[in-house]
């Protein structure tokens, strides 16, 4: 089974052969093994875990929002944002998170803006959970 993870700004994984995959679906985590039925789903914010063919350890990527399509022998993950642990800087993430929380205290926000900020908050929290691993 081949896994591809792309975002509009970069390509994280390109057709990597994997044995097992866990994706953060919008309705909860989904496990995908080779031979899975074709499926399309929306992604939430969380950790995507994949296990390479020969290995026991899971590789992890923090993904937020997007889609996941499972085809006969490949999985394509289209994420709004995806970062590996190496690319994240804890202080920067904390600062962004504080900024968002500060903005949320502002009373004059439209429901749409609040929804966007909440999404952003969740994304940063996902980053933090990956950093702390």
């Amino acid at each position: 089974m081949k896994l591809t993870v792309v975002t509009p700004e970069k390509m994280i994984l390109d057709s990597v052969v994997i044995q097992e995959l866990l994706v953060p679906g919008i309705k909860g985590e989904m496990g995908i093994l080779p031979g899975h039925a074709p499926l399309v789903s929306t992604l939430g914010s969380g950790l995507l875990k994949y296990r390479l063919s020969e290995e026991k350890e899971f590789g992890e990527i923090a993904v937020s929002w997007g889609y996941c399509e499972v085809q006969a022998d490949k999985v394509v993950v289209l994420a709004e944002s995806a970062e590996t642990k190496a690319a994240l800087d804890e202080q920067k993430v904390r600062k962004t998170l504080e900024g968002i929380l500060g903005e949320l205290e502002n009373a004059q926000l439209s429901p749409e803006e609040i929804r966007k900020l909440r999404q952003e908050e969740q994304k940063q929290r996902t980053f933090l959970s990956l950093i702390r691993k």
């Binding site: 919008i26 309705k27 039925a37 074709p38 499926l39 399309v40 789903s41 929306t42």
Partner: peptide, 11 residues
Amino acid sequence: EGFSKDLIFEV
């Protein structure tokens, strides 16, 4: 080609 029509949709 290689497309299956019975996709499972979560949403």
